[in-house]
Design a protein around this nucleic acid. Structure first.
Length: 158
DNA sequence: GCCAACGTTGGC
DNA sequence: GCCAACGTTGGC
């Protein structure tokens, strides 16, 4: 069964357009350094799931598209690379500590659905990403929330 | 195991 | 750039 997620990225670091330029519009979602998010990436998110691509620390922040999850969780090798900005000296090949998944761009929305809009929408205001103080970069999205957002985009297209 | 200090996230 | 929220670290 397909599950739905929201993945945050700062567009100044990695944007949906950056993903669109990658070979096969696919990349390894690396650099997550929070245990709760790590557990989701390692254990819970599976091939065939889908996720919203969320631009955080943007003006405005919001949901900008959809990615398909195209691998199960695998060790995040960026933690092992001293040259990488996400290097973690406590990670080892035997105990990789951090995980990620491969994602492929499914769709960039015709417009960004801003955080403000989510908060104002009765069916979306309870999304985890709208909660004050929420810092988790990987959060679950309910089937209803997923379909409501698709309906907004679909409506705009007509 | 507590908790103060510190670092990071991310909206504004 | 500010700062509230929250996660992590480390002394005790």
């Amino acid at each position: 069964m397909t599950h739905y997620w929201l993945l945050k990225s700062e567009p100044s670091c990695f944007s949906i357009d950056d993903l669109a330029r990658r070979p096969k519009q696919t990349t390894f979602w690396d650099g997550v350094r929070n245990y709760q998010a790590r557990n989701l990436l390692r254990d819970t998110i599976k091939i065939g799931d889908k996720a919203f691509f969320y631009h955080s620390n943007a003006t405005p922040p919001g949901i900008i598209g959809i990615v398909d999850i195209v691998s199960n969780g695998t060790p995040d090798k960026s933690a092992l690379n001293p040259e990488d900005e996400h290097y973690d000296p406590t990670a080892t090949p035997d105990n990789p500590r951090w995980y990620g998944v491969d994602v492929r761009l499914e769709k960039k929305f015709s417009r960004l659905i801003s955080l403000d809009e989510l908060k104002l929408h009765p069916g979306l205001a309870e999304m985890q990403v709208t909660r004050r103080g929420n810092r988790l970069s990987v959060t679950p999205v309910t089937r209803n929330e997923w379909q409501r957002i698709l309906a907004i985009i679909d409506r705009d297209a007509h």
